[in-house]
Amino acid sequence: MPSDLDPARIADLYRSACLAELDALKVGNVHSYAAGHRMEVADFARSAEVSAPALARADAGIGARVFAGVAATREAVGQNTNLGILLLCAPLAFAAEHGVTLVQALDRLGSEDARDVFAAIRLASPGGLGQAARYDVTTETAETPPLLAAMAEAAPRDRIARAYVTGYEDVRIVGLPALAAAEAAGLDESWRASTVHLDYVSAFPDSHILRKHGEAIAEEVRAEAQRLKAGIDMVAKPVAQLLAFDAVLKERGINPGTSADFTVATLFWQALIEAGARLA
């Protein structure tokens, strides 16, 4: 029977998901095969370590977990390495701790969560954020909407916001099936993560690329990833082909970071389920 999970166990599973994602060859991202974007694997490993206690803090709200994780990360590494990861993983951690489904956890979100998340986004200062006509997170306001309302406003332009209002549809229809298929094919943990990431990059234009480079380049990267996926066999561990695309993206300053965030969330989701969490 599904049950509440101990916060310490949740923190361990979160760390493991973050580290497994770093070991994977994820085109355009920082990983153990190659650094990039002026960041090193050590920055992300340190970020996972310091943010884990915040993410799994007993009885904390979802927004509070995100803010505390971002604050701990900024203090430790001085830059934004995991805002998207925390945004996606905090609801999963909350649901696992309280023995509820993900949708039930999201339904509990309110204005206090929005205040904390908006503050976390301002602190992280992600690249290409820009400003919104409504519910602009870059400016503190007297009234803050419930977090789901703010996420619904941002959903058409941001996949992480969309995840909040669709019950993590992308994880359900892209990430988890890709992970199951990779496991069935006998791939080890890092290559399962690499497969999941490539599936995300090829499934939809990455939000981080959209914000920084625009729709045309985001679609170009998605289409190229789709062609690459169709032409390789992940069972054969195609390091050379993946690194070639990885180098092209990094040379152009293109980072499919949202796809990497979703990869961590997918690994974390699966680990929580295996540990007895309810989630679905």
Rank of each mutant, 00 (worst) to 15 (best):
L22G: 07
V50R: 07
Q131A: 12
K229Q: 13
V30L: 00
A180M: 08
T138M: 13
H213A: 09
A178N: 01
L87Q: 03
K26T: 05
A185M: 10
L279K: 12
V235A: 14
M234W: 02
G84K: 08
A54Q: 05
P156W: 06
E169H: 14
I217R: 12
V137R: 04
R278P: 08
D116R: 12
V41W: 00
T166E: 13
G128Q: 10
A52N: 06
T141Q: 12
L242S: 00
G186T: 11
V171C: 10
S32R: 14
L228G: 12
E153A: 14
A114S: 13
D188V: 06
A90V: 05
C89T: 11
R162T: 06
D6K: 11
A182R: 07
T73R: 02
Y164W: 06
T81C: 00
G69P: 12
A180S: 15
I62L: 13
R57W: 03
R65T: 02
E274G: 15
R172H: 11
A119H: 02
V137P: 12
V77A: 01
L176C: 07
Y200A: 02
L129C: 07
N29M: 06
K26M: 03
G175K: 04
R252Q: 14
L5H: 05
S259W: 01
V239R: 13
G130H: 12
A24S: 14
V77Q: 00
L102S: 11
E220W: 08
V77P: 01
E224P: 01
G276Q: 12
G99Q: 10
L176V: 14
R211D: 01
D43V: 04
L148R: 15
A64K: 08
L86Q: 00
R9D: 15
L147S: 06
I62V: 14
R278Q: 15
A265I: 10
N80R: 09
A152Y: 03
M151R: 06
I209Q: 01
G231V: 05
A105R: 10
V165E: 07
L87T: 03
I173G: 00
D113R: 11
Q104P: 09
